[in-house]
Nucleic acid binder design. Structure first.
Length: 171
DNA sequence: ACAAAGATCCGT
DNA sequence: CGGATCTTTGTA
């Protein structure tokens, strides 16, 4: 139980997304709400989206206003609205020019990326938020989890061979 | 300018 | 299994 402030530093996010996605399991997503409440949620499920070649990654469309943040240095938030209803929370990873990110697909008590975004009260103002400096959203360290499961990523059947990668990680 | 699809969830 | 609901992207 991390009672003291143990925020993950910039360096954590400047590695390969395929290392970071499993490493995030068991760590704490911390949200300081507008009313002053601070809640910690244990991360239980992630997915890696890796670079312009990965057809499931939005950055495969190239550098657009939507994907721009993924091309920047890691340690920031990439959010987008899906189906007009759900804000997907992604953590940008890698050095500048490596457009990769981790989708937070679930946290303890809130399975599913749509439920994560709803519980955290996300909106477009979180686009580009720095996980290193933010007063309202960051990640805190925790002991590595004992056993990590993998599977194909969910909901990306359009991505051809990339849909077969075992880039979903869960506890 | 317009149409289509989307890293989802909920209720029937 | 279909509806909700709206942004992004591709095509004209």
């Amino acid at each position: 139980m991390p009672l003291k402030h143990n925020r993950l530093p910039q360096n954590f996010f400047l590695r390969d997304v395929l290392d970071i996605a499993p490493d995030l399991l068991g760590k704490y997503l911390v949200r300081c709400f507008e009313d002053g409440r601070t809640e910690r949620y244990r991360i239980t499920e992630t997915e890696a989206y890796s670079g312009i070649e990965d057809l499931a990654c939005h950055a495969s469309k190239g550098r657009t206003s939507r994907t721009e943040i993924m091309f920047q240095k890691g340690g920031t938030v990439y959010v987008y609205l899906i189906y007009g209803m759900y804000w997907m929370l992604n953590l940008v990873t890698g050095t500048e020019g490596d457009p990769s990110a981790v989708l937070i697909r679930g946290m303890e008590g809130f399975p599913g990326p749509g439920r994560v975004g709803r519980q955290l009260h996300l909106d477009r103002s979180f686009y580009g938020e720095s996980l290193i400096n933010s007063e309202r959203l960051w990640i805190e360290d925790a002991e590595p989890v004992a056993e990590i499961h993998t599977s194909k990523r969910i909901g990306i059947d359009y991505a051809g061979e990339w849909a077969d990668k075992l880039w979903r990680f869960y506890i």
